[in-house]
């Protein structure tokens, strides 16, 4: 599950970074901002992997509280930057450009993003509950 958590967090950081880059019109007119987002996502994922390899406590560090705060702060940051109208178009447009999938509608991409964020958060909660239960059971067994 720790790799999924890393993917979940890296995805949010990638999208936020791309949205920040998009605010520069000069950059937006010259570069595929979607690709910048994907590069940021990969860099974030690799960085988290390296930290995990060195410290080995990533699963503990990336607990549900961290994931939830990360979700709230990145989405909050995007809402502050873009406002309510642009947020329903821009992240989807950036992802669409990065994927070169111009025929996929913004609605479809938004549904995919929301599904990933909601189901992903649900999966992280379930996984933590299962881990807590199994830890509790093993404590009872060893008593």
């Amino acid at each position: 599950m720790k790799y999924f958590k890393m993917l979940y967090i890296s995805f949010l950081w990638g999208v936020l970074f791309a949205v920040v880059c998009f605010q520069s019109e000069w950059l937006e007119m010259r570069v595929n901002i979607g690709l910048i987002g994907f590069v940021m996502m990969v860099v974030s994922f690799c960085t988290l992997m390296v930290i995990d390899k060195k410290k080995g406590n990533m699963n503990k560090l990336l607990n549900f509280k961290f994931v939830l705060w990360n979700l709230v702060l990145t989405i909050g940051g995007m809402v502050l930057l873009l406002g309510s109208e642009r947020i329903s178009v821009l992240p989807a447009a950036i992802i669409r450009e990065g994927l070169h999938s111009t025929r996929v509608s913004f609605t479809t991409i938004n549904i995919l993003i929301l599904s990933f964020l909601i189901l992903g958060a649900g999966a992280i909660v379930c996984s933590e509950n299962i881990q807590k239960k199994s830890a509790k059971n093993s404590r009872i067994l060893f008593k």
Binding site: F4, F11, R96, L99, S101, T108, F116, G120, A123
Partner: peptide, 8 residues
Amino acid sequence: LSLLVFAG
């Protein structure tokens, strides 16, 4: 979940 994200 990963497939869902990268479906597009």
